[in-house]
Design a protein around this nucleic acid. Structure first.
Lengths: 154, 154
DNA sequence: TCGCTGACTATGGGTGACCATAGCCAGGAA
DNA sequence: TTCCTGGCTATGGTCACCCATAGTCAGCGA
């Protein structure tokens, strides 16, 4: 069983998809461990530079570089803020593009929870307390499995 | 706005989550570009070694190593097969754990399609032709946003 | 004005991921 | 028996990513 391919996708020979595949572009832009862990931390509400570095468990040099890249690609922005009696500082916050990474983050958490050894947090809906899962659905509301998914040229 | 954290997660100071986070474990196991692109290719129906290497656009040495790792962590298995008049060969196929990566793959494709420059395939439901999206839903059927998601200790 | 703190930048070095090229091995085909 | 092909393994080198340590810089507090 596989995803079905239509159009040019179906006919390609052994030609790599390369940067023609949006997944590849995503991975090139933000597809390293540290960047994704930083995004996770920002989802968790961390916004300050030193806290981000410590919580991700990475040196400040690396945190600075990855955060700069995340700002460059438009996943995060720096917002000046000031605590009373403190000087102005920069907070890292998610942009709309960053918030759109939520399914990626949760899908990675979900797979790790199911298929790796170790503890995992429960993911629940604040409104009703039911467990939350990442799903594929079509606009008509059907749950879509691997066999029901078709990729075609736009 | 952020994901709300409950239990020990809420109280941690600047302690890194490290391998206590299933997302981190996922990224350590399969979180490199080549591995994820190989998984994508297998979802697309490619199963032979040389086709996988060529289509992902990676050298055979690297393909061999990544495929070996994917087999080790249980995402892929090797299945012997034989075309008529050919000798027995190995096909790489997804295990159940591998198939569970579908939301990860589609989430990455979806983000790249929305937020990077370039072409992107349409993702449609074979049954009804409607576009497919990755969503967060609770067991009661509610669509869950960032603000409605709570992570708590298991 | 001096020092402290948060937010970085700089330097040197290790490891892992990747490439290109070359070689190995099993097993049908000739 | 030799050749060819698919499926790897081996070697040597580059580059990205990471660490640890140390330094810089801005601005508030005293």
């Amino acid at each position: 069983m596989a995803i079905s391919l239509a159009g040019r996708l179906a006919e390609r020979g052994d030609v790599p998809l390369g940067t023609g595949c949006p997944m590849d572009r995503t991975l090139r832009a933000i597809g390293n461990r540290t960047a994704l862990l930083l995004v996770r931390e920002v989802f968790y509400g961390t916004s300050r530079f030193d806290a981000l570095a410590k919580r991700v468990g990475v040196s400040e040099a690396v945190a600075a570089q990855r955060l700069r890249e995340l700002v460059e690609v438009g996943v995060l922005t720096k917002e000046p803020y000031r605590d009373p009696g403190q000087r102005t500082r920069q907070a890292y916050v998610l942009t709309d593009a960053g918030r759109d990474l939520l399914p990626v983050v949760v899908a990675l958490v979900q797979w790790g929870a199911a298929h790796t050894e170790g503890t995992a947090p429960r993911r629940t809906h604040v409104g009703c307390g039911e467990p939350v899962e990442v799903e594929l659905r079509c606009a008509a509301g059907h749950v879509v499995g691997e066999a029901d998914l078709e990729l075609g040229t736009a």
